[in-house]
Simulated assay, not measured.
Amino acid sequence: MNLVRHRRTSTVLALCCAVAGVGLVGCEESSDADSKPSASTTTATATATEQADNAGAFMGTKKIKFNGLSVNVSCSGKAAEGRPVVVLLHGGGDSVEKLAGFQKSLSERDRVCSYDRLGAGASDKPGGPQTIESTGKVLTAVIDEVTGDAPVVLAGHSLGGLIAARYAPDHQDRVKGLVMMDATSPTQTADLTDGIPESATGMAADLREQTLAVLEGKSPEMLATPDGEVRSAGDIPVEVIQHGKKYLAAVPEYGPALEASWAKGQEKWLAVSTKSKLSTAENSEHYIYVDEPEVAAKAIRSVVSRAGAGSQAAN
Rank of each mutant, 00 (worst) to 15 (best):
residue 301 R to M: 13
residue 273 S to H: 05
residue 116 D to R: 00
residue 213 A to E: 15
residue 311 S to E: 15
residue 116 D to F: 03
residue 190 A to L: 11
residue 250 A to M: 13
residue 101 G to H: 10
residue 5 R to K: 08
residue 66 F to M: 01
residue 178 L to D: 03
residue 39 A to C: 06
residue 109 R to K: 10
residue 140 T to E: 15
residue 19 V to P: 02
residue 226 P to G: 12
residue 11 T to Q: 11
residue 119 G to C: 07
residue 209 E to D: 14
residue 36 K to A: 15
residue 98 K to V: 14
residue 185 S to L: 04
residue 310 G to S: 12
residue 314 A to M: 10
residue 105 S to Q: 10
residue 302 S to E: 12
residue 154 L to T: 04
residue 103 Q to H: 06
residue 112 V to P: 00
residue 206 D to K: 09
residue 76 S to A: 14
residue 185 S to W: 02
residue 171 H to Y: 11
residue 221 E to R: 15
residue 92 G to L: 03
residue 178 L to K: 07
residue 57 A to W: 01
residue 308 G to H: 05
residue 162 L to H: 08
residue 167 Y to C: 06
residue 244 G to C: 03
residue 51 Q to G: 03
residue 152 V to T: 14
residue 117 R to E: 09
residue 32 D to F: 06
residue 261 S to N: 03
residue 160 G to F: 11
residue 129 P to V: 10
residue 230 V to D: 01
residue 226 P to H: 11
residue 172 Q to A: 10
residue 200 A to D: 05
residue 118 L to S: 08
residue 48 A to F: 01
residue 45 T to C: 08
residue 301 R to A: 14
residue 44 A to D: 04
residue 231 R to K: 15
residue 215 L to Y: 04
residue 12 V to Y: 01
residue 103 Q to D: 10
residue 224 A to G: 07
residue 176 K to W: 01
residue 89 L to N: 00
residue 26 G to I: 04
residue 78 K to P: 00
residue 246 K to Q: 13
residue 194 D to N: 09
residue 32 D to G: 01
residue 198 E to Y: 02
residue 144 D to C: 02
residue 107 S to V: 06
residue 127 G to P: 01
residue 177 G to W: 05
residue 111 R to G: 04
residue 127 G to R: 11
residue 61 T to G: 02
residue 41 T to C: 08
residue 252 P to A: 06
residue 197 P to A: 13
residue 189 T to I: 15
residue 98 K to W: 12
residue 29 E to V: 04
residue 44 A to K: 00
residue 279 S to C: 12
residue 280 T to Q: 07
residue 167 Y to P: 01
residue 193 T to S: 10
residue 226 P to R: 13
residue 272 V to H: 07
residue 274 T to E: 13
residue 105 S to H: 10
residue 31 S to R: 08
residue 167 Y to G: 06
residue 92 G to W: 00
residue 194 D to C: 04
residue 267 E to C: 01
residue 136 G to C: 05
residue 166 R to P: 05
residue 287 Y to V: 13
residue 120 A to Q: 12
residue 157 H to G: 08
residue 90 H to K: 01
residue 54 N to R: 14
residue 57 A to E: 13
residue 8 R to D: 09
residue 213 A to N: 13
residue 2 N to A: 13
residue 101 G to T: 06
residue 162 L to F: 12
residue 299 A to V: 06
residue 173 D to T: 10
residue 314 A to P: 00
residue 236 I to T: 08
residue 230 V to S: 02
residue 145 E to V: 08
residue 306 R to E: 15
residue 37 P to W: 09
residue 112 V to N: 02
residue 275 K to M: 07
residue 23 G to E: 14
residue 307 A to E: 10
residue 259 E to M: 03
residue 220 P to A: 14
residue 141 A to Y: 08
residue 270 L to H: 04
residue 203 M to V: 13
residue 107 S to E: 09
residue 179 V to H: 05
residue 214 V to F: 01
residue 34 D to F: 07
residue 68 G to R: 00
residue 263 A to G: 03
residue 62 K to C: 15
residue 94 D to R: 05
residue 266 Q to D: 05
residue 223 L to T: 05
residue 109 R to F: 10
residue 260 A to R: 07
residue 37 P to A: 14
residue 225 T to M: 15
residue 202 G to I: 03
residue 219 S to E: 04
residue 108 E to V: 06
residue 65 K to Y: 01
residue 46 A to P: 00
residue 41 T to Q: 13
residue 129 P to C: 06
residue 197 P to L: 15
residue 65 K to I: 08
residue 182 D to N: 09
residue 291 D to G: 03
residue 161 G to Q: 06
residue 124 D to I: 13
residue 201 T to Y: 12
